[in-house]
Design a protein around this nucleic acid. Structure first.
Lengths: 327, 327
DNA sequence: TTGAAAGCGTTACCAC
DNA sequence: GTGGTAACGCTTTCAA
């Protein structure tokens, strides 16, 4: 800034103001200063700003995995929304483990984020205390806990399975299996499984079996591997309810390979309305969960909070059955 | 720190050293200082440290899109590798536009990253100057420019298409089309197209047509939409060489819907060895590019550079044809 | 509309 | 092994 100021014969203070679009600097000098800064290849030092103002401009975000199109969608809309307010996201992946989340949250908090956004409502006690102690806005997303730490934007993973089970029952599917990650790993997945069991019980369907695809994250290959291992035993079920679309896609293609007719002999459903569900032939029956919208709402909510107009919120996002050709 | 120092009658400097586990502070005072700091509820200010030392602990990373399994793989291995050295990544997405990349690089540089990793070798002149002016390590990945800005870890996108074209030619496919994003958008995609044209010319195949799937990023739905629009006109070609596996998957499933036999009437190939290529039935012929390994190598390279043992590097990663059932 | 001075919390550097 | 001094690049505050 000193260099830019010297170049134009103004004070560094004026440069500082100009670069922040302070209205008290005349439009003309502002333009001159911007140009000179550009010419000199000057880059504003956010670190110094963060230090001086005690505001980092960071929002910390934890995701179970970056390698998941739905979470990536949420992240994208979230970071776009925040960028519009000049805030940057600080991203970390938990690999679906609350202990990793705790470590991550510690690291992220050391950067003095002005807010923190966590995926899901399952956290270690230490994580809860750490974020509470900061007195910064906390948003839990992709779930809808009864008592959020701060705010929540999402949906009930259990309730979201009900339309699927009803849809299957309506077309005469009785015996269901739920296929997902091992117990204790993917906790939103466990919620979905519980939702399937509850809905089945409510509709008087037989008990729902659990098909264990291994430790989270589970994806196409895990669905395919398990289905190929089970082979004809899949025919014991009227429908395989999968924890996600990629998993369902794996199961669907394994069935194709081993000659099981879908949906003739067995129905398959997914979750999340991933692109693959709509493009696959047949299309995979799934549930849309507005992944991008979750990020959008979270960003807007934070904006309101920073503006001082945000009340404690628990925003329920919509879920919608998307019938396909696999059921 | 001043308060802690006053409390114990030592200097702030000693406190600073003690809290950083500096060996020159006696073990006894170190323990006393730690305790006093704890009792006073003192919290170390990373922001001030980053400011004073001009070491942010950040490595800036730009990706065309987070919503791409290959880039996500690279990012994951990269950030894991860096985390092992106590460094955090600062991620940004360029949406496949060099102008957005320039804006992003400005934002990222403002955080004083200790290194910057860019995807690809196409950048605006300003981007080049900005990163050069920083005198921090620069790595370009996912490409192999003749003269990298700093270091490069990747492969030639053009050369990577040669095995595909040879494979197609060997099985008697003569008339090829390349299906990808509009000209000027996805520049690595344009390189791949050029690679297909060059390889076809070399093998004496007829000219390669271009099928425009629209602005980048193109994915499953764009491949499917274009294929459905073209319909029987696809049969003019012996093979559709797609810019990526998701696009190829879209084309494959559109063909299935409109009744075009793959690979009987037309072959389809992808790029990148995405999970969907291996799980799809038939499997999609593709090229593996070691996405995770690129991140791993970049992280290791940076580690060496920080340790002072890294020479300017241009690391070529391997590409490997993965034949599938679509060709 | 612009400028001068002071200071944010830490650490590099040098002295003892 | 410890301490004093100055400075990192910016913004707040007050004055002109």
């Amino acid at each position: 800034m000193r260099d830019v100021a010297k170049q134009l014969g103004v004070s560094p203070m004026t440069v500082s103001r100009a670069l922040r679009d302070d209205k008290t600097v005349s439009a003309k000098t502002r333009a001159r200063i911007r140009k000179a800064a550009d010419d000199l290849g000057y880059v504003y030092d956010t670190t110094a700003q963060a230090f001086r103002t005690q505001k980092s401009g960071f929002v910390a975000v934890t995701l179970p995995s970056v390698n998941n199109a739905n979470f990536a969608d949420t992240y994208r809309s979230l970071s776009n929304g925040l960028a519009a307010r000049g805030m940057q996201t600080l991203l970390g992946a938990t690999n679906y483990r609350t202990e990793e989340e705790e470590k991550l949250v510690r690291q992220l908090l050391a950067r003095n984020p002005e807010a923190i956004i966590l995926t899901g409502s399952y956290h270690t006690g230490a994580t809860r205390e750490l974020v509470r102690a900061r007195a910064i806005p906390v948003i839990e997303m992709w779930d809808l806990p009864e008592a959020p730490i701060g705010h929540a934007v999402g949906f009930s993973n259990a309730a979201a399975m009900q339309p699927i089970v009803e849809h299957l029952a309506a077309s005469g599917r009785q015996k269901l299996a739920f296929l997902g990650a091992s117990e204790g790993d993917d906790l939103r997945g466990a919620d979905r499984r519980q939702g399937v069991m509850d809905a089945a019980a409510m509709l008087g369907l037989p008990n729902v079996d659990f098909l264990d695809a291994g430790p989270a994250p589970v994806s196409m290959r895990h669905g395919a591997a398990l289905a190929e291992k089970l082979g004809p035993r899949l025919l014991e079920y009227d429908a395989i309810v999968c924890v996600s679309d990629p998993v369902a896609f794996g199961v669907l293609n394994a069935c194709r390979r081993i000659g099981i007719d879908v949906p003739g002999c067995v129905a398959i459903t997914g979750f999340g309305n991933f692109e693959v569900a709509a493009i696959s032939e047949p299309k995979i029956t799934t549930v849309d969960v507005e992944a991008a919208r979750i990020g959008e709402i979270a960003a807007r909510l934070l904006g309101d909070i920073f503006d001082g107009v945000g009340a404690p919120s628990r925003v329920e996002t919509e879920v919608r059955l998307v019938p396909g050709g696999t059921s």
